[in-house]
Design a protein around this nucleic acid. Sequence first.
DNA 1: ACGGAAAACCGATTGACGGTCGGTTTTCCG
DNA 2: CGGAAAACCGACCGTCAATCGGTTTTCCGT
Lengths: 128, 128
Amino acid sequence: MQLGELEKQVLQYFWQGRDADAKTVHAHFEKRRGGTLNTIQSTLDRLFRKGLLGREKQGHAFIYRTAMDRQAFIGKLVEEIGADYEADPGSTLIAAFSSISGKLSDEQIAALERLIEARREPAEGHDT
Amino acid sequence: MQLGELEKQVLQYFWQGRDADAKTVHAHFEKRRGGTLNTIQSTLDRLFRKGLLGREKQGHAFIYRTAMDRQAFIGKLVEEIGADYEADPGSTLIAAFSSISGKLSDEQIAALERLIEARREPAEGHDT
DNA sequence: ACGGAAAACCGATTGACGGTCGGTTTTCCG
DNA sequence: CGGAAAACCGACCGTCAATCGGTTTTCCGT
């Protein structure tokens, strides 16, 4: 799923929190990059058709909202990379970790480790 | 770094092992997808300019070879995703792991854990 | 119910970029 | 040095995001 620059920015706008209609989104972006309301509208529509935003009529306008949170989306993109280059899931993760590990704080490493530990023993019901 | 379909396939051809000139690569792809030698040549040249293949004149022709192995490249792509969506390295990895973990074998999980352990205590030399 | 504003929708254009390939130039080897 | 082999150049096509003017639809207030 390759997105254009404006699409990425709009998606992040929604991940920042609030739902919004085209007019509101346009008001937000108009300052930092210009562009007409129409441009925003078609970008929202494109993101909607791609399944990345949901929407709901409210009065005249559609109110858009995220359909997938950042974490899920990034996860999907990483999976996609693995598939694109025919890397099995394990080596995809190892590649990711090898490339990124140097930038992790101790706290983040610990968080990773907790996640792995949780996945390792799914039968052990100490929480959830 | 977004690559086209042919570019991906050519890159994987080189990751499969052997170095090769355009003619050899063309011979390989001609069967499964057609296309002229010229098409292969410009694809190789594009991958070269993108830094993904190296090359060296040998007689008339360039012999191309990978400039980055699959693992390094996938790692770079994952980093890029994180940057594109302004996710910090830690949450990028967590997103990747969450999305993929269900597809991992126990062996692969163990490998991951060893990697993390190694990163956790870089001073402790118990194995290489 | 209706008239107008607000928003959606449509269609055209532009700019990147990958893929494709014909034709020209360069390179090297016998 | 001549010819073949390969690189290189330039053009064209298809796709897709961004852009925006113009038209149609929708709804709300009177």
